Amino acid sequence: MITTLEHVSVLEETDGLIGMLKHSDVFEHYRNMRDKLAKDQEAQSLIRDFVKVREKYDEVQRFGKYHPDYKQVIQNMMDIKRDVDLNDTIASYKKAEEQMEHLLNEISLEIARAVSDSIKVPTGNPFFDRGCGGGCGTGGKCGCH
């Protein structure tokens, strides 16, 4: 019975954490940028064009430079990627998404460390993360304990 009560308590705390996240400034900004992106016809058109070019790009990648359309598809991919990256609405959405991801990563680390310092928490690119949470398999070269 104690285990069941502990599980209920954890679930209640989780619901509270979710509620705080939903009312945070970071989440509100993310939601606003997502809605703005959904309504921006130019951005949506760029995204659709990117998906089409990406499908051709994936096909070309199977054959590499031996594909007859290799150079053209690679150039198209670079052009559409630049257009997508330079679109203000898409760039704002990506930045809001990264801020939300950063917040979730921080929460995950705090929860893991509250349980044990040796719990591994994936927080993105392992080459740029300073602390891995311990036990990373590098023999301590990364500075973890």
Rank of each mutant, 00 (worst) to 15 (best):
R130D: 13
K56G: 04
G140F: 05
E98Q: 14
I111D: 04
V84Y: 00
R31I: 10
D69V: 01
I2T: 13
K65W: 10
I74A: 02
D79H: 11
G135R: 01
V73K: 00
L37G: 04
H23C: 10
E101R: 09
S118Q: 12
Y93T: 05
D49M: 05
T14C: 13
C132Y: 09
V53G: 04
Y30R: 00
E98A: 13
E106G: 08
F50V: 03
V60Y: 00
I2C: 14
H102Y: 08
E13G: 07
I80Q: 00
T89L: 02
I2D: 14
G124K: 03
D35W: 09
E28D: 11
G135F: 03
L103E: 12
R113G: 02
H102F: 12
T138H: 04
I74G: 02
K120L: 15
G134M: 03
V51K: 10
Q75T: 15
Q72L: 13
L11T: 15
G139N: 05
G133S: 01
N87A: 02
F127I: 08
N125S: 10
A38Q: 15
H23A: 15
R82P: 04
E28K: 14
E55I: 11
I74T: 04
T3R: 08
M1F: 15
H67Y: 01
D49L: 03
S92F: 03
D83Q: 07
H145L: 10
G124Q: 07
R31Q: 14
I74V: 13
K94Q: 15
S9L: 13
Q99L: 07
Y30L: 05
G134I: 05
E98S: 11
K39C: 14
D15C: 14
F27I: 09
G134N: 04
R31L: 14
R82C: 07
L17Y: 11
N32L: 11
E12I: 15
E13N: 06
E6C: 12
G140C: 04
I2H: 13
T123D: 05
G139Q: 04
E13R: 09
T138C: 12
D69E: 10
D83T: 05
S9V: 09
G64T: 02
L11H: 11
